[in-house]
Nucleic acid binder design. Structure first.
Lengths: 205, 205, 205, 205
DNA sequence: GACTAACCGAGACGGTACGTCCCGTCTTAAG
DNA sequence: CTTAAGACGGGACGTACCGTCTCGGTTAGTC
C-alpha cells in the first residue's frame, strides 16, 4: 500500500526506505504467534520481540495489530479466492462454497473470525477489512453470478449484491455463531436454496 | 441462579446471597457507560467506580465484562423479541424483520455487534451469548415458520433451522460488515426471497 | 485481658460469653501459619479460615493480627523468661543471656523480630508489646541486677534501667540487624563488658 | 550505576539509561509523602501519582517501596554521618551521639524506624539497608574509636565491632522500643559507660 | 569518502486496566 | 442472640500492553 506510490513519480526518494527484511519478519512473527497461541496472544510487543524489531518500526508501517494480521494473512498465506468455472452456475456456486468452507474449517476460520470481531471495535480497520478482504470475495462471487446471467441461468435484472448477501450472510453467521458446521451439506443447501429462489422460469412461471 | 435449588432439599443453600442493590447498580452502571461512551469504555473498573462497588463484587458474580453487558442489555432494557401474528407468514416475517432492523439501527445495534465480537475472543462468553441471546431469537423465528406450516404456507418438511440461517445470516452479515443498511427495502427483499424459495410446489403447480 | 474482668463482679452474665474453643483455635491457627509460612502469611483471613471461625469473631477479641500473634506466642508457647540464680551476678547474667540467645536463634527470633517491626507501624500494638513482652523481660533482668546489689557486686546507686538498656540494646540490635550472631561468645562479651564498667572497686578506685 | 562501565570498552552500554527527571521526581514524591503523611501512606501508587510517573517506571528501578524510601532518604536529604574531631575520644563520642540523637528525635527517627521495621519483613531490603545505611554509620563510629586508639585512649586490641554494638545497640533499642528518650543525658551516660569499660589498664594502674 | 537524514533495534516512558489479596464492616442462616 | 461463613466497599498490589519517546548505531543516497 505504501509502496504503491513508489513507481509513480519518485521525486522524493529519501522518504520511506523501509527494510524489506524487517517487513517480512514482522508478518512472519504475526503469523507464528497467531498459529501457535491464537489471536489473543498477538500483541504489538510480542510481534516486535519475535521479529527482533523495534515497536516503532511496526507502528511506522501499520496502524494496528489487526492490520498487521490482515496483511500477514492475505499476503503470506496463499488464501486465494476460488473462482471455479464448471460450466453451470449451480456447480460453480457449490464448488465456490465448498472450497471456501474447507478453508474456514481449519485455523484460517479462527483468524477470519478474529478479524471480523476486531473490525467491530476499530472502525478504521473495519473499513480496511471490508475493502481488502470482504470486497475481494464479494466480487469473485459476483463474477460467478454474472456468468450465470450470461448463460441465461439467472435473470439479467437480478440484484447481485443482494444475492451475494444471501450467500455470504449465512456463511458468516455460522462461522461467527458456531451453532452449525460449514460442511458440504450446508454448501449444497445454500447453493440450491439461492438458485431455487432465482431461477427465471420458476420466478415468473 | 442460586435460588433455583431451593425447592429441593434446602440443605445446602449456604451460598451467601448476593446484594440485590449492588447487582442492580452494576447493571445500571454498565448500561450508562455503554450508552454514554460506547462498549470500548466499558471496563470492570469503570463499572465498579460508577456503581460504587468493589471490583471483587463484579468478579464474584460475572466472569467477564461481556457477561455483565449481556445481562444488563437483556434484563434491564426492554429488548423484547418481536412475535407478530398478522395472519400470513409473509406479513409476519416482514414485520419481524422490520422490527428487528429498527432496533438494530440505533445504539442497540452497536451493543449487539460488540457482544458478537467479544464472543469471538472469549469462547465461554460465546457459548452464553448463543444460549441467552441468539437462541431466543432463533426460536421466535422458528415459531413464525411453524405457524406458516400450519397455515399451509410452507412445506411441512421444511428445514426450519436452515431457513432461520437464511434470515438471520444476511441480517448479521449487514450488521457486522456494514456494507449496506438494514432498511425496509432489505426487510422486503429478504422475506420475499426466502418465501419465494420455499413456497410449496403444489401452490404453483 | 478481656477475661480479667470475668472473675471479679460477674453481674452481667450474658455479656462476652466468648467461646473458649474458638479462642484456642484462633491462637493455634495463628501459631500454625506462623511456623509453616512465616509472619508475612499471617492474615486475619488466613487465621479465620484455618481456625474455622468467622473474621468477626477475631475482630471481636483482638484489635490486630499482631495482637493475636503476640497472645498466641506468649500464652501458647512456653517462652518463659529465664531467671537464673547461680550465686553470682556474672554467672546469672551470662546464663540469662545465653538462654535468651538460644531461644532467639530458632524460629522464635523471627516472631519476635516481626512483632517489634509491627510495633513500629502500629502505635497501639507497640504499647501493648512493650507492656506485655518487653517490660516482663526488663523486669527479670532488673531483678538479677537487684540481687547483684544485695550481694555487693554492684553499686547500690546503679541506674538499673540504664544497665538493662546496655544489655538488651546490643541484643536487639544484633537480632534485628543480623550483622553478627547471638552466640555464646557474645553472651560472654556482653556480660563481661557491662560488669567491668560497673564494678564498684574499679569505678571509684 | 550503568555509567560505571563506560570507561572500559564501551561495547555493551546497550542498557537504556533511566530518565533522570523521572528518577528525581520519584525520590521527591516519596519524600513529600513521607513527611506529610508518614511511612504508612507511602505506596507505589501514591508515589507514581505524585511524581507523574507510571508505576512500571518505579518497579523498573527499585524492587520495593522501602528501597525507594531508603534512596530518597539517603540521597535527597542531607543526612550526613557526623564525624567530630574534638581532640579526645570522650568528646568525639559524646558529640557523635548527641548529633545522631538530635537527628533521630525529629521525623527522621520515624523514617529510620520504619526502614528497620521493613527490613524485618523483606530480607533483600534488609541486606540493602544494612549495607547502605547501617554500615556507613558503623564505619564512622569505628573511625572514632580508631583515632582513640592512636591517641592511646583505647587499648589497641579493643574489639571495635563489639564496641560499636555497645553504642548503637542501646540507641536503636530506645529508638524502636520508645521506653526512654534519646536525650543528652543518655548520650552522656552511654559514652561514659562505654569508655569506663574500655579505659586502658595501664592508665589507671 | 564524508556527510547526513532516515531508519532501525531496543526498550524506557506515562498511562489504563487487569485480576488478586486483604482490610475492616456488614449481612445472612443456622444452631 | 451468638456464631461461621463470607459478601461487601475499598485500597493497593504487581503485571500486561498500549502508543509515544529517546537513545546510539547503521545505512543509503548526495555532495
Amino acid at each position: 500500500m505504501e509502496q504503491s506510490l513508489q513507481h509513480t513519480i519518485q521525486k522524493t526518494p529519501l522518504v520511506q526506505r523501509r527494510s524489506e527484511q524487517a517487513h517480512q519478519a514482522i508478518l512472519q512473527a504475526a503469523l507464528d504467534i497467531l498459529e501457535s497461541s491464537g489471536y489473543r496472544a498477538v500483541t504489538i510487543e510480542a510481534i516486535a520481540a519475535k521479529a527482533g524489531v523495534g515497536k516503532k518500526t511496526i507502528y511506522r508501517w501499520w496502524p494496528s495489530k489487526a492490520t498487521v494480521v490482515l496483511e500477514a494473512f492475505t499476503v503470506r498465506t496463499a488464501t486465494v479466492v476460488p473462482l471455479p468455472n464448471e460450466g453451470s452456475l449451480r456447480a460453480d456456486l457449490y464448488i465456490f462454497l465448498e472450497t471456501s468452507f474447507r478453508i474456514l474449517r481449519d485455523v484460517t476460520g479462527n483468524i477470519v473470525r478474529s478479524l471480523m470481531a476486531e473490525a467491530q471495535f476499530d472502525p478504521a480497520f473495519g473499513e480496511e477489512f471490508r475493502v481488502t478482504f470482504i470486497n475481494a470475495r464479494r466480487e469473485a462471487l459476483t463474477e460467478l453470478f454474472k456468468r450465470g446471467i450470461q448463460r441465461g441461468e439467472l435473470r439479467a435484472d437480478s440484484n447481485l449484491d443482494f444475492l451475494v448477501d444471501m450467500i455470504y450472510g449465512p456463511m458468516w453467521y455460522r462461522l461467527l455463531n458456531r451453532h452449525a458446521p460449514l460442511d458440504e451439506a450446508f454448501a449444497h443447501q445454500l447453493s440450491d436454496f439461492v438458485l431455487s429462489a432465482t431461477q427465471p422460469t420458476h420466478r415468473n412461471g
